[in-house]
Design a protein around this nucleic acid. Structure first.
Lengths: 203, 203, 203, 203
DNA sequence: GATGAATGAGACTTCATTCAT
DNA sequence: GATGAATGAAGTCTCATTCAT
């Protein structure tokens, strides 16, 4: 029985990578079966359809991020800045070790308008990510509303940076973005404004 | 001939929207022919293949951005801050008027690893965009190196915000990001650091 | 354009015979394409699915029976007995010229519980057939209620006779049944009863 | 062993119902295994193949009819009319208690031209049924030849009535047919002719 | 230039059957 | 004997592309 679970996980792992790099439509069940050594028909013992398989792959990523990355934000024993740094490092490590960027981000852009079944999964993943950043920002003294807005911008920046890294085949775009996010909580717009005003008055 | 060209433009316009919302693989030549009123076989009088059609659609977007958005950055008669605001407003207006986000960003994530022919087009588009931001930032006094890094982050933030807007069906994510970018040049990391240090010393 | 219609009719004719003899599930699109010289994929230019193709085949039979057999019942210039004879002869001729019995009867038993889309077509066909017999019986002086009941039995007898002919590869079962139905309107139960009583009294 | 046999009977009972309602091709081994609580692979401990399983199911019906319905015809202690009534009642009771009509009649129309292995079974079943009716009719004074012809029509009427009952989801079609058959031996064609002639002469 | 039927490769999926455990 | 994963052939259907009219 442990063999069984291993097999299924192997299929998911192979499918996950193919979906991430080739997209959902372009990846065929034949590709996946070749990647995991199973025959085409055998995949259907584990997954009733290609869609289900993709959902399980996304669920796998979702769970992994929840357990190993987003959970860092909840560690109230660490300072907000320390949590930011640790979450950033974990995020960067995850994506640096894998080509093709973010599975769920990629599938989001490809399927959001055509496969409604994926939408809840996609939203839950990003919702959790945003909430993680917002939690840290709020712990740093930001208002809940601003913390959430900044969290959304943080996730946007990471996803955009993943896109840039892929487009230019240069991981520095991701590193750059993570560095920006990791050092300290962002300064919301008005605070920046005030800071500038202060600077101007000093001169 | 101009009539002909109009026909071709209509095909491109229809294909562009379908590719943006449904992705490349999911969009069929039949979808496109239905969208523009032509029959399946007739598409091949204008475009030798689906790939060529997609490339022309991307080229259309590329040219449009170059002429109407990126060109704003070159307007040396306006202040950097004014150019940022105008470019931000134009960008926001473009994407707010269309569902599905950014054609080239979407196709980038879907096809970068499977259709190498698209890569030069995708890179040129993002290269221009980054350059536009870098140009403004440099005009604001930033070093060329920092300006380019900040430009890349700016484009990343926009693309990520487009993803968030689509995921949550909420255009405020884009507005939020554009507001952040439009107000003034970003404060590079070390400058913020210094500013904070200044603040601390004052207290 | 007449070529087009001919092609489609040819496909239907080939499919019709295959469905009648092999059943719906057992007949593959490959069988049909081989029978009409078209490639598998080409069938989908004419019919969106196998189900639709089968429905058109059934519709073809339905129309043919309506126009060439059931219409005989409406010919008020002929006596009921003459109409019975002509309808019986036409029915027998149709089924004698074809192996495999009645397409719609066969598909009825095979698909009634599994392909609900076929049900309306199947019912309409039998409804018309019953109505044709009932019309003649009523013209022969039978009450509408009894005429309908006898019509249903007439159609049942024909379908059952087709089954017997197929089981025993002996067309005499059909001929036998048609002879019984063709000679004159049936004597409803109570009339037979009365006739027997009369006979008994006479002796 | 008796436990084993019970298991086998359960499989056959489940398969029988599925084959009757869904047909042979449409019914999968997975359907059958789900219906009887066994797993897919386990079915092959009892039956070497799907065809064998279907043959055993048909054999089950064949034996049941032989023992509980056709045997009534052999009961020389009862009058022909009484036997007809009892056989009709038993037949009607059997089919009224089950949806989907007659397993062997259904499979006959579906498989007669494609699974020759089933043919002997199908023929034997109908042969017995016809013989049963012929036996009663002969006991009623009909010539062997006429009795057999009338027996075939009786079975045809029943099978056709089962079809009508299923098509219109109305068991009255079967009841109607059974009433016709149960009251008394049919009047062969020529006898009716003579009776009519007698009637005419009287007027 | 326009049409739309035809092509043929290939996609997802099903299913009877086998076999190692 | 029971299990259920694995097999591999085959089924329905899609689709980019071609071509005769």
């Amino acid at each position: 029985m442990p063999i069984q679970k291993t097999d299924k996980e192997e299929v998911i792992a192979g499918a996950l990578e193919l979906f991430r790099r080739q997209g959902y439509q372009r990846t065929t069940m034949a590709d996946i079966s070749a990647a995991c050594g199973l025959l085409r028909g055998s995949l259907y013992h584990y997954f009733p359809s290609k869609e289900d398989l993709a959902e399980e792959a996304m669920g796998h990523v979702d769970t992994l991020f929840k357990d190993t990355i987003f959970s860092i934000a909840e560690d109230e024993t660490a300072s907000p800045t320390a949590r930011l740094a640790r979450m950033g490092a974990a995020t960067e490590a995850y994506f640096t070790a894998r080509r093709g960027g973010c599975l769920i981000g990629n599938l989001a852009l490809e399927t959001l308008d055509t496969i409604p079944e994926f939408r809840p999964l996609i939203r839950r993943y990003f919702e959790r990510w945003i909430t993680a950043y917002a939690h840290i920002y709020a712990a740093g003294g930001m208002s809940p509303r601003a913390a959430r807005a900044e969290g959304r911008k943080a996730v946007a920046l990471i996803q955009g940076a993943l896109m840039m890294s892929r487009v230019f085949e240069d991981t520095s775009a991701l590193q750059d973005a993570m560095m920006k996010l990791s050092k300290h909580p962002p300064t919301p717009e008005n605070e920046v404004e005030e800071a500038r005003n202060r600077d101007l008055k000093q001169n």
